[in-house]
């Protein structure tokens, strides 16, 4: 029987990869965003202690308007260039997909009445959101991944509809995982508040210029993080429509709702690994460990 061994809220500003200077990324930096990067390093160390087979990532930057899509080919090798921050992120990737589990989740979602499709075009490029989150939690890239697209229900209908659709998808993915023999880590890849500054410092990693876009977004971010610490994820998901609209949050993708539903809506405290602003947006690294014996109070 399969198992979800952890769920991680892993924001994907390309800045954190840029600041880390991995060999796969073409640009070089003088560092920056240490609060996030050190938090990611600690989370990556924890995940190394867990026994798991694959990483499932729900990504806001594979945006689909016709249903939810899953990757259906075993290997992708190319270069991912961030269309918004190409100066920071031009990442040469070489990664593996767990197609078997990807197809199982696709079938489960389809059986549950959702519009789904397998993506089987070998020229398809993996989005930078997937790569940033996957790289920061597993820089060795020694686990296969399963990216899931973000069906843009928030745009087409409302955040409420997104929430319901994402919950249904979470249920379907949970069913597929439990019916498999795989142990997986789930990744919800996004920021919290998501209003950007529209200008960039001459030196992007100039940390004297980094702060949240406005105080309102900060207070909202802290409200959600406080609820996460208290293990009140049901309340977080119920607050999602208001939070998303008030802070232009990247939760509009449905990613966090999907992960919480797939994990059975945790009522235990999240592990908080760090919070920091990146070009105005609010980013928290958090993890939900279902095992009380290994669950930590990190920050």
């Amino acid at each position: 029987m399969g198992e979800i061994v952890a769920g991680c809220l892993a924001p994907h500003p390309p800045h954190v990869v840029y600041a880390d200077n991995p060999e796969q990324n073409e640009p070089n930096s003088e560092g920056g965003w240490e609060t996030l990067r050190w938090g990611y390093a600690k989370l990556a160390r924890k995940l190394k202690t867990l026994d798991y087979d694959a990483i499932v990532i729900f990504t806001p930057h594979w945006q689909t308007y016709v249903g939810t899509h899953f990757l259906g080919l075993p290997h992708f090798k190319s270069k991912s260039v961030d269309p918004v921050f190409p100066n920071l992120f031009r990442f040469n990737y070489d990664l593996n997909i767990d197609v078997e589990l990807s197809k199982s989740m696709h079938e489960a979602a389809k059986d549950a009445g959702m519009v789904t499709m397998m993506m089987e075009n070998p020229d398809f490029r993996i989005d930078y959101g997937t790569i940033v989150s996957a790289h920061m939690i597993n820089p060795e890239w020694n686990k296969p991944i399963i990216p899931i697209s973000s069906n843009r229900n928030s745009h087409y209908y409302s955040v409420e509809v997104m929430n319901e659709q994402a919950r249904a998808l979470g249920k379907a993915c949970r069913k597929a995982i439990l019916e498999s023999d795989k142990r997986v880590v789930l990744i919800s890849s996004h920021s919290l508040s998501h209003r950007h500054f529209t200008v960039e410092s001459e030196l992007p990693e100039d940390m004297s210029k980094q702060h949240i876009y406005n105080h309102s977004n900060y207070v909202w971010d802290m409200k959600l993080i406080d609820l996460m610490r208290q293990g009140k994820m049901d309340e977080v998901i119920n607050l999602m429509p208001e939070f998303t609209e008030q802070t232009i949050a990247e939760t509009d993708s449905g990613s966090l709702t999907w992960m919480m539903e797939a994990m059975g809506m945790p009522d235990y405290p999240a592990e908080i690994y760090g919070y920091q602003s990146v070009i105005g947006t609010g980013n928290v690294i958090a993890s939900w460990d279902p095992n009380p014996d290994t669950r930590e109070v990190v920050l």
């Binding site: 594979w62 075009n121 697209s149």
Partner: peptide, 13 residues
């Protein structure tokens, strides 16, 4: 490059 659409990838590259 060779571009593929996010939604309509099944139509081709």
């Amino acid at each position: 490059w060779v571009h593929v659409d996010d939604d309509f990838h099944y139509l081709g590259s």
